[in-house]
Design a protein around this nucleic acid. Structure first.
Lengths: 241, 241
DNA sequence: GCTAATTGGGCTACTGTTAGACCATTGATG
DNA sequence: CATCAATGGTCTAACAGTAGCCCAATTAGC
């Protein structure tokens, strides 16, 4: 951890890949995080290209790749578009070990550490802020929706709940960081079997997080998020051995 | 904060600009954060181009731009290279209002919130980890170096201290996020006059942060970092009126 | 001095990316 | 059943970025 470490941090690659690859990753993020729910469609190509800051040609290449990979169904004509056909894979216990192995030890611990830091930070910041009634209602609403969720909507609404915390801080940078952190573990989360006992446990932890935030208790919020994430992290780390 | 907010978070621009612009930003980050200290030189072009994942042509354009802007002195031949000539501008109280105004209210609050979250998160994560003797020594060493720093080295060593906390977590993602957060406020920090009373105050807060981390107290570490950053944030926010 | 190694400076052919225009398809609506 | 607006599909010319090569300058060490 001498100065050369900092050199590597700052002088890292400027671009993660070419425009096509980065676009595929971004669209996959929108799909896997459930930002665009299954059955819904992406914005029109012309609009999306502007939002992503790329040309329509490059965007179309990325959409084509996701179509070939089975994530999208593209239909022409008015009321057409690129419809999301992806549904999270059914959790199978055999998958987890493979998914963890695919990711690599270093990347996994990095992602888990990053997620722990940014989500704890976001919750603490939000708890320290003065919230409007609308913000409190939204947070409670996301929690209620998650508690009522069926098994097929659970992951998507869980993501929505967690990301809401970062979004409510009003910091786009923080929301982006949390979305990025979540994406890096989403494949792993999808491979974890959803046992009722775990869901109940998570539900209590979610309640604790919301309670601490609404009570304006930053340290309680940080601790509640840390405990919540540590459960998942410990489970995943167990598969590294 | 409905779903369209999340769409904007995920479907943001894939690239912040062209390769040239992003490279200029990255090199500026290395210079302004003091990763490459004044008088030292950047790595050779061929090496740096590989590290940054761009072609030498594009890198040279960026170096040329920084040369024209007075940040670098480029010398040919063996033992030549791109030498950093930049020194942080002397703090002048009149500058701060202009620098804050240049940045814009939204960007400033976003950056301050982001920094608060990631630095608090990093400190809490590090405090929760089991540290080796080497890691403890490095943290103490950075703190000691900062306390002994002259006024011309203060900002650079302050940056080094803060970034060390994130780097010691072992998460490259977290280190990158903290470096990014720091860069976004570096122009502002440089414009703040360094009064002895403030430096003494900061020194005590730095001691508290290190003490909490070494004591394995995540909530104390979070609180110490939050108090430390809140002082700066409050000062900057006062200039928004 | 000469030499040799290292470094910046510059060129060219090739590929990736863009902007903008125009075509093709679809389906709700009159 | 004809219309038409919204949407994906395709093409072209121009620009941005890359890889690889060779030239030019500098200086420590012989």
């Amino acid at each position: 951890m001498d100065d050369s470490a900092r050199l590597m941090t700052v002088l890292r690659p400027v671009r993660a890949g070419n425009a096509f690859e980065e676009t595929v990753e971004r669209l996959l993020q929108a799909i896997k995080l459930g930002v665009v729910a299954p059955g819904r469609k992406l914005p029109p190509e012309r609009e999306l290209a502007v939002q992503l800051g790329i040309s329509r040609v490059t965007l179309r290449e990325a959409i084509r790749a996701l179509q070939d990979a089975g994530y999208l169904d593209v239909r022409r004509g008015r009321y057409g578009g690129a419809f999301v056909t992806y549904a999270p894979p059914p959790p199978e216990s055999g998958d987890l070990r493979r998914v963890v192995a695919d990711m690599g030890t270093a990347d996994l611990t990095d992602a888990l550490t990053f997620r722990m830091a940014v989500e704890c930070g976001a919750a603490a910041v939000l708890a320290a802020a003065t919230l409007t009634d609308d913000q409190r209602a939204l947070l409670r609403g996301r929690l209620a929706a998650l508690n009522k969720a069926g098994i097929e909507d659970y992951r998507r609404l869980d993501t929505a709940f967690h990301l809401s915390i970062a979004e409510l801080t009003g910091s786009a940078l923080l929301a982006t960081a949390c979305a990025d952190a979540r994406l890096r573990v989403s494949d792993l989360l999808n491979a974890i079997p959803m046992l009722q006992v775990n869901l109940d446990h998570s539900a209590r932890q979610h309640e604790a997080i919301v309670a601490a935030i609404l009570a304006g208790d930053p340290e309680g919020a940080r601790r509640a998020v840390a405990e919540h994430l540590e459960g998942t992290a410990a489970l995943l780390r167990a598969f590294l051995s």
